[in-house]
Design a protein around this nucleic acid. Structure first.
Lengths: 358, 358
DNA sequence: CACTTTCGTTGGATCGATTCAAATTTTGCT
DNA sequence: AGCAAAATTTGAATCGATCCAACGAAAGTG
């Protein structure tokens, strides 16, 4: 086989075709980046040379270095990459991010990794102009890594104490209080809470002391909101069972079994995510417990699935896509001001909540 | 405000900290890329300088140029970016791609664009080692652009005539024939076909001549498979209504209205995608037509949603995630051989198909 | 003590483009 | 033709790193 099509070709550079066409590399560059300023005859000659030599256009790797801007934003998470396509919350968020990126012509780079070292490396070597950090499990580490990169970044969902990190989120306390208020208004007085992570890698019942040491302020704030309202109507919050889950099916079911394995089970479940709430719906239905008549369930997030569950879920809806859009905007227009935005939430009452029996 | 934290800092370069630490840039580079070969005392000094000057580690932009490899693959489509997160087929595919990328430590860049020029630019300037091209609408243009980039790429779903483009796909003829065979075995003889695009940007009824001029070989092959089987049992395929849709709700409903707006409507629908089949299920149910008793519906793809529809959908399942994994592998191990793989499909019989009435 | 290894460090070359001031060619006008 | 203005083209500098041959110093050997 000669060197006709494939073979041991080292890539063709702009300089090569410049030489072939008998022009300077400056001119050759112009042919591709500002064709209008080069004389037609020359332009055609260079293009012909490029074609003949199999030149695929200016290599972005080279341009990049000069230009400085990558024109892409990185979306990072400590979850496996498939999280972006599986999790309903993430999907809606990504839709918002996508929309903003489409509008501005920016690309999206998904950053994640199997193990921890690779995560670090991937963040360190990501070709992006900034990061949107999905703070689920392992959020604090992610924020740390992103910060080290000295690029603009915004953290989602982790209302970190550290005021220096830009975040876009919601008023978790108020949102949670709305959910609880809805249930107390209906007359409920016996509650259980399905909580998101307070700290990484733990599931199970949560004591009040453990709440104090929460890494995830979002989780803590939602609990605060719930308890604020419950206290208001005289519920002893120290007796309200709070179960921490990994926001997956297994640990949520474990929590449910513990919650309903007692003599006087709750009449209402406050779930910190729709995902957990939806699992609860299924589990209760399998147990022949009627929602909302035996048990009311209120979720959090407002993912699309919550509207089509059986029964449709009462939930506190976040403007998820809007958060995504704003995050992109914050990074692209990064004006140096580290800002923290809070968007409004909305209680959506559907069929999963009703007054308690009797 | 002085230049304390923010300000008009131009970014710190490796050379800057080398000078500050009193070492050559070569040594400074080694501190980050091969720390073990530099004497501890020097290493600490350089690291301290980096810390002090707010250096965020070697800029990947610089490294990239030298290294040549980006370690990321681009996934391109002509649809808006959100397609990746909305469409069930795309999501399963992306899950497979993600998995393979996670395993090898490669990143994923989503490439798309609002308009056509931007698409070209985005493909030309994507920082990737290769492309996976989602050939839905506008597939041929995408393939063309990807090819011009002279990077390895594989096309999904578009079984292009052009043998020079690598593809990973399925045997569409055989898969479609299986679907049709299932229905003919049940006794059906009156059919209608919900077809994917034969050419870009057209929807509505399709004439046999139009089928010949199909740009999308996948669509054509599925129809061929359907008709092969229908002919075998004596159905006059020239009388079988074939409606081209954009694989969205609106055009599918329009097709359904045309299909059922006749005196003797079909007893079975052959849908070239689960998406259309699921729309058909809803539409039929709203029309008080019972599936499968009044009408049988068979989909194509085997997306997760098909298992939980009402009723669950009989469909031809592609190994979607596996296709994604293989595509990544093909690009990463790009050995220069343009190969075309065909993976097996499987008929999954669920509750949306039954013998026709009477 | 002279001589070979080993270890660390240096600085120039390179990756592939873009940019821009200066040089050169064309064009326009009288 | 003569000259200024406009249009093109040139080539050096730059972007931010990595690589590597060569070199100096310290350690080991006979």
């Amino acid at each position: 086989m000669a060197s006709l099509t494939a073979g041991n070709r080292r890539p063709v550079r702009l300089a090569d075709i410049a030489k072939a066409a008998g022009v300077s590399h400056g001119t050759a560059s112009n042919v591709f980046s500002r064709p209008e300023i080069v004389r037609e005859e020359v332009r055609e000659r260079v293009k012909a040379a490029a074609e003949a030599m199999g030149y695929g256009g200016p290599d972005p790797k080279g341009r990049l270095l000069r230009a400085g801007k990558v024109n892409a934003i990185g979306v990072a998470t400590a979850e496996p990459l498939s999280y972006f396509f599986d999790d309903p919350f993430a999907r809606v968020m990504m839709a918002g991010i996508s929309q903003a990126c489409d509008a501005t012509g920016a690309g999206i780079s998904l950053v994640s990794a199997g193990n921890n070292e690779q995560l670090a490396w991937n963040i360190q070597s990501a070709l992006v102009d900034g990061f949107i950090v999905f703070c689920i499990e392992g959020g604090s580490r992610l924020v740390q890594l992103a910060r080290e990169r000295k690029l603009p970044f915004v953290a989602l969902d982790l209302a970190s104490e550290d005021g220096s990190v830009a975040t876009i989120g919601i008023d978790n306390v108020a949102g949670a209080a709305m959910a609880a208020r809805h249930l107390t208004d209906l007359g409920h007085r016996r509650f259980a809470v399905l909580a998101l992570q307070f700290v990484d890698g733990r599931t199970g019942p949560v004591s009040p002391e453990q709440v104090q040491t929460a890494v995830y302020a979002g989780t803590r704030d939602r609990l605060t909101g719930y308890f604020q309202e419950l206290s208001r109507v005289g519920v002893d919050t120290s007796k309200v069972p709070v179960y921490e889950t990994a926001n997956d099916v297994a640990s949520t079911i474990a929590a449910l079994e513990a919650i309903f394995g007692v003599a006087e089970p709750p009449t209402a479940i406050l779930a910190m995510s729709d995902r957990m709430a939806l699992v609860a719906l299924e589990w209760l239905s399998a147990r022949k417990l009627n929602v909302p008549n035996d048990v009311s369930v209120v979720g959090f997030d407002g993912v699309p699935e919550s509207a089509v569950s059986e029964p449709p879920l009462t939930t506190v809806a976040q403007p998820i896509a809007e958060i995504g859009r704003l995050a992109v905007k914050a990074i692209l227009e990064n004006d140096g001001t580290t800002n923290r935005r809070q968007l409004p939430v909305e209680l959506i009452v559907r069929a999963s909540s009703a007054p308690p029996r009797g």
